[in-house]
Design a protein around this nucleic acid. Structure first.
Length: 618
RNA sequence: GCCCCGGUAGCUCAGUUGGAUAGAGCAGCCGCCUCCUAAGCGGCAGGUCGGACGUUCGAAUCGUCUCCGGGGCACCA
């Protein structure tokens, strides 16, 4: 009888389609070729042509040009110097010593000394059966098996709705996570909720003031809204909800609220001092419990909104991690104690400083302020300490590029704690600038008018938004063309790829309408009929897919997959225009349909990893 | 001033971790539906890979310097 384990309330199972089985392990071609070359190298070492103490890493690459065969190796050029031998001559010797293989048709020495491999037809055709057999699992692998990785991304302050800058982090973080899961890692996606700190107090104060307004305390403009408060309409919504549920329970007279407060900026004062005074006043008048009610009303409302927004965007988390919980669990104190014990902290001007300059940071950083409050940085130290304590093999943070200055101090803190800072990868995502009609559509955050992620999703759709965000390398500034993302034409890469998928579906429908059926076995038995250059190109492309997924995952570069899918769609459309699939010859027809179905499968798998839908008709 | 990222075709970007003749898509020009969706395909044209020097068999890729653009340098989060 199975036991039910209680899950933490904010923890959930991965909701994405899980296909636990991985691609059946046909020994990857690169490894086969590597071992052939290794055999030859070993012989040459015995013959002392190559120094025995040399153990070169054998690199096998896909060729760029089909006339160079399928794979190429540059080992002869690498070893030419130590072997005191011309690269081409060495290449010839290596080729002569390589054992025969039933997957290799031809081995040739070319150019300055490349060894080019051409696969047998049987080996190139095999991919079709592999894809159709593996289905959704094709492209998955087990490189990351038994390794766990935590990916923290978005983690925007819950002080307002997500904007388009967060969108890029969301799409990128989710794609990296899904890719890592696809290559076998156990992935823990996490959103760090900044539910403590001054910004949240400002939010609470903003909500409270709007609430007081709704109670009637601002009937004659006697309760001015702070310059530094959050002015968005959503604050009104939260205040209205608060008033609906609590009526006048948190009401205090405007004069009481404002009594003896310093001047706001609008009255010639300092807006920072003013807002802090207002927060103190709110806490004093409301008392701890009521203040927390107002605070939580703001926090929960916005967090729920963010959660719904992200879910709609295909981004789900295993955990929403509370910053406040770090303080409550004592993790922050514990981190500070550990740093004190190892004498990485010192006291100056009433504050406690972390000596991060010992670890290459440009200046030391405060962890406990002179007023006794711990800083955001202290929470971050505790958080990262805690992440590593959880035992992940690797930890990834996806941050906006504007936080890059933060990386050295976080790594410094981990090192100071005696943890392995190299387990942490911080991936920095550059800004996305929206263009509409060729002009910038994004307002500056300073003016308070920013395009929200939700607006973007509504305007261009989730598919286009997800795809466009990951089309570029994350460190590349991105121009996001809204018109292109919305356009339903081949200019739009999303539609272009989806259309390829829909076309295959359409072909299969046509087949049915003609009263025909597809015999897959017969098709697989007649793959040799696929001799057209377009077909060869598709076969090669299909075989590359697992390599692309692997590279995209391990290098955290989902754009590789996006580009691959576009190229594959192009291969398909070209093929589609050049040849009929539904021909009279049953053998050719069945073979072509096998190829085309395999193509559809790979497009579906690839778009699936990017959370882009695969329509069956368009 | 110091640090991070970028600079490749008119525009937006790739470039398999140092490989062979630098590639796509837009935009421009010329073609292709009696045919499984023309939301598609083919062709032409377009380049001093910001610049200089260096490293080596070989550089868009690595190093140093330099120019241009973006961002960051809190007892904020």
């Amino acid at each position: 009888m199975a036991l039910n384990f209680a899950l933490k309330t904010d923890t959930r199972e991965i909701t994405s389609k899980t296909t636990p089985e991985t691609t059946p392990e046909t020994t990857p071609m690169k490894e086969q070729l590597t071992s052939l070359i290794q055999t030859a190298i070993d012989v040459l070492k015995n013959q002392q042509v190559i120094p025995a103490d040399l153990s070169p890493s054998i690199q096998i690459d896909r060729t760029r040009d089909a006339s160079h065969g399928d794979y190429a190796c540059n080992i002869a050029m690498m070893l030419a110097k130590p072997a005191k031998c011309k690269p081409r001559d060495l290449a010839e010797q290596i080729v002569a010593l390589m054992p025969a293989s039933d997957t290799v048709e031809k081995i040739a020495v070319a150019g300055p000394g490349f060894i080019n491999f051409t696969l047998t037809d049987a080996a190139s055709f095999a991919v079709v059966a592999t894809v159709l057999e593996a289905g959704e699992a094709y492209g998955r692998s087990s490189i990351g098996k038994n390794k766990s990785i935590q990916v923290e991304f978005v983690s925007a302050n819950p002080t307002g709705p997500l904007h388009v800058g967060h969108g890029r982090g969301a799409a990128y973080g989710a794609a990296v996570s899904d890719l890592l899961a696809a290559v076998g890692y156990k992935v823990h996606r996490e959103y760090y909720v900044n539910d403590a700190g001054r910004q949240m107090d400002i939010l609470a104060a903003s909500v409270w003031l709007r609430y007081l307004d709704l109670c009637g305390e601002n009937a004659n403009d006697e309760l001015p809204f702070p310059v530094n408060g959050y002015k968005g309409d959503y604050i009104w919504d939260i205040a209205a909800m608060l008033h609906r549920e609590n009526s006048d329970a948190f009401r205090h007279a405007a004069q009481t609220v404002l009594k003896d407060l310093p001047a706001d900026e609008s009255a010639g004062g300092d807006k920072e001092i003013y807002i802090d005074a207002l927060i103190s006043r709110a806490k004093a008048l409301l008392g701890e419990e009521a203040y927390r009610s107002v605070f939580d009303a703001g926090l929960n409302s916005i967090l729920d909104d963010i959660r719904r927004d992200l879910e709609g965007f295909g981004v789900v988390y295993e955990e929403w991690f509370s910053e406040r919980s770090l303080t409550e669990s004592g993790a922050v104190d514990r981190a500070i104690e550990r740093l004190k014990e190892s004498s990485h902290l010192y006291e100056k001007d009433g504050a406690w400083w972390f000596r991060s300059t010992d670890f290459g940071d440009e200046k030391d950083r405060v962890v406990v302020r002179d007023n006794g409050q711990t800083t955001y940085f202290a929470s971050d130290i505790a958080y990262h300490m805690q992440k590593l304590e959880r035992g992940y093999d690797r930890v990834i943070d996806v941050w906006g590029a504007d936080h890059h200055g933060y990386v050295p101090r976080v790594k410094a803190a981990l090192t100071a704690l005696g943890d392995d800072a190299s387990k942490l990868d911080v991936l920095l995502v550059q800004f996305a600038i929206l263009y509409r009609g060729g002009v910038k559509a994004q307002m500056s955050t300073r003016s308070g008018e920013f395009v929200t992620l939700r607006e973007l999703r509504e305007e261009v759709g989730d598919d286009a938004a997800r795809f466009f965000y990951v089309m570029r390398k994350c460190e590349q500034h991105m121009d996001f063309d809204l018109d292109l993302a919305k356009s339903q034409s081949s200019d739009n890469p999303v539609y272009y790829i989806q259309y390829a998928h829909a076309r295959v579906c359409s072909v299969m429908r046509q087949l049915e309408e003609k009263g025909l059926t597809h015999n897959s076995e017969n098709g697989l038995a007649n793959l040799a009929m696929l001799s057209e250059s377009h077909e060869q190109a598709l076969l090669t492309r299909l075989a590359r897919y697992p390599e692309v997924v692997e590279a995209a995952a391990l290098n955290h570069e989902p754009h590789l997959l996006a580009h691959f899918l576009r190229d594959m769609a192009n291969d398909f459309h070209t093929y589609y225009n050049a040849h009929q699939f539904l021909v009279d010859d049953v053998c050719v027809r069945d073979a072509r349909l096998c190829l085309v179905k395999a193509t559809r499968q790979v497009i579906a798998n690839g778009l699936g990893l990017l959370a882009v839908s695969v329509p069956e008709s368009m």
